[in-house]
Each structure stands twice: as C-alpha cells, then as structure tokens.
Amino acid sequence: MNVASRFRTLPETGESVQFTLDGVPATAPAGVTVAAALVAHTGAWTRQTAQGAPRTAYCMMGVCFDCLVEVDGTPNTQACMTLLGDGMTVRRQTGLRNLNGGHDG
C-alpha cells in the first residue's frame, strides 16, 4: 500500500535529517517531530489496531495516541511528542499496544 503524502512541504532552506521507515530511507527537515516526518512521507497508515484497522498520527499534540510507532527499537513511542533525530529507525507497528504506564481508571 502506497499513498502519497497528504501534505506539501514548503521548500524552506535549512538542514535536513535522514531516517528510515520500515527500512526505506527518507528525509525530513531538522527540528520536526517523528509524526510530522511520517505524515510528510506517506499518506498511508503507520499503526494497525488490534482489530487490524489502519491508523496514523491524528491530533499531533499528545492526546490521541494514534501515532504510536517503534523508534530505534522502542515500541509504543508517541511520534508526535518525539523530535526526529538523524539516523532514526522508525517501524510501523501492528496489533495491541502495551504501554508501561498505569492507566486504569
């Protein structure tokens, strides 16, 4: 599944950083979040729910947790709250999330 990005990134000058998404190399401007880089790179899903539904970053402000991906081997990383670093390895994730926080209520 290959869906073009739903955004156009302004051609601004500035440094860029390299990362990979599921092993595929990609580039993004320095200083953006992992979620911004992912959404600029693809219009497709970056996470699948337990029931197999496609999701991608939604709120961009740490509220919805639909942006969870694996970053440098750490699953369930909130992509919209994580700054993209040069050489980061990002992987889409599928199935259940298991956050290490207590959130019963």
Binding site: R6, F7, T9, V32, A36, T56
Partner: peptide, 24 residues
C-alpha cells in the same frame, strides 16, 4: 479514524512546526 481524516488544529500544528501545507 481513517488515515486522511484529522483535526484541523492538528494540520495547523504541522503548518506551524514543519511548514507542511494540507493538499486538496
């Protein structure tokens, strides 16, 4: 919940922080 549906304020965050403009 579909990829491609998003809050307008979230798109605005991308405009402000990443210079990304919503297309179509």
């Amino acid at each position: 919940t579909l990829p491609g549906v998003m809050p307008a304020g979230a798109a605005q965050i991308l405009m402000k922080t990443a210079g990304m403009l919503p297309k179509d």
